[in-house]
Simulated assay, not measured.
Amino acid sequence: MEFIKAILYGIIQGITEWLPISSTGHMILFEEFAPLGLGDAFRSVFLVVIQLGSILAVVVLFFHKLNPFSPRKNKEERRETWSLWGKVLVAVIPAGIIGVVFNDEIDRLFFRPQVVAATLILYGVLFILLERRKRKPTIRSFHELGYREALLIGACQVLALVPGTSRSGATILGAVFLGSSRVVASEFSFFLAIPVMLGASLLKLAEAGGGFSTLEWSVLIMGAVTAFIVSIFAIRFLLGFIKRNDFTAFGYYRIVLGLLVLLYFSLR
C-alpha cells in the first residue's frame, strides 16, 4: 500500500510542481485521504525529497540549453549559457535568504488550510486579471532578460514560501508582469527550481541523517522516479499549451481548488 501511495504522490508532485496550480494545495487534500503510514518524520522528508525526480526531468529536457560546455555551442552561445546561469543564481538569492532564516516561522504561521485556500484563490484571480491586460511581451529570449528582471522574479519567488502560492505560479506571474513571454517565463521558472529544490532536498536529507529503513528508501525512490516520469510529460504539456493558450484556465482552476479546500476543511 505504501508503494501505491508513493506512486500517487509522485504523480501529484510531477504534475503540480510545474503547472502554476500549487503542489501544496493538492498534497494537503491528498494527505487527508491517503496519508503515508511511515511516521511524521519520514513523511516530512518524503514530501520534499521526491522533488529530486522533478528536478532531474528539467535537467534532462533542457540539458543542451543549460550545458555551457556543450561542444555543439559556439563561443557566444556558451557565454549566453553562463549568463543564464548567472541570472538563475541571482534570482534564487531572495528566497534562499528568507527561506533559511524564516522557514520554521513561515510554516508555523501559514501552513494551515485557510491560508492555502486563500492563496490559491488570490493568485488565481491575479492570473485572470493579468491575462486580461493583453500587453505585448518585451522579453522574448533569455538574452533580453536582464539581471534586474531576474532579481525581481526571484523576489516573487519569496511569495511562494507561503503555502498554496505555487513556486511556478509566483515566478511565472512575476515574469509575465515584467514583460516576459509565457515561454520565457515558464522556462525560467523551471530553471529556478534546480538550485531551490536541490538545496531543499539535500538539506532535508542532511537533517534526517539518512537513517531510513529499506522500506522507507524504497518508497522514497519510487516516489522520486514517478515524479521524474510524470514531470517530463507535465513540462512538455505546459510548453505546448501556452503556445496556443494563456494562463486563464489555470486561474479558474486555482479558484475552484481553493474553494474546495476551504469547503472541505470547514465541514470536516
Rank of each mutant, 00 (worst) to 15 (best):
Q114V: 14
P71M: 10
L202A: 11
P137T: 04
G251E: 10
K243Y: 10
S44W: 12
G210E: 03
M27C: 04
R268L: 11
S22V: 00
G86S: 07
M222W: 11
V230T: 11
N74W: 11
I15G: 01
V183L: 14
R78E: 03
K87R: 13
I55A: 02
V49I: 05
E77G: 01
T248A: 09
W85R: 11
F102P: 00
I11W: 05
L178D: 09
F247M: 10
G251A: 09
L159Y: 03
A175W: 08
R167H: 01
I12E: 08
G210Y: 01
I7W: 02
D40R: 15
K134L: 08
K75N: 15
Q157W: 02
L220E: 10
N245E: 14
P35M: 02
L122H: 02
V58F: 01
Y147S: 03
S141N: 09
T81Y: 01
A118S: 14
V58K: 00
F46H: 08
V116D: 01
A200P: 12
I12N: 05
L52R: 04
S189D: 05
G240M: 13
L36E: 07
I11M: 06
F30C: 11
F241C: 08
R135I: 14
L198N: 06
L205W: 09
S83T: 12
F62V: 03
L173F: 12
V45A: 13
F250W: 07
A234Q: 03
S83A: 15
F42Q: 07
I97C: 12
S231C: 00
A170W: 04
G169E: 03
A227L: 00
W82G: 14
V59K: 00
E31K: 13
A185N: 07
F212M: 02
R244C: 04
I255A: 09
L202F: 12
L56G: 02
F247A: 04
G210F: 04
V100D: 07
T214I: 14
F3H: 14
V116M: 04
L238T: 02
G39E: 12
G209S: 04
L122W: 06
M27Q: 07
W18N: 05
V90K: 08
L257I: 13
M197H: 02
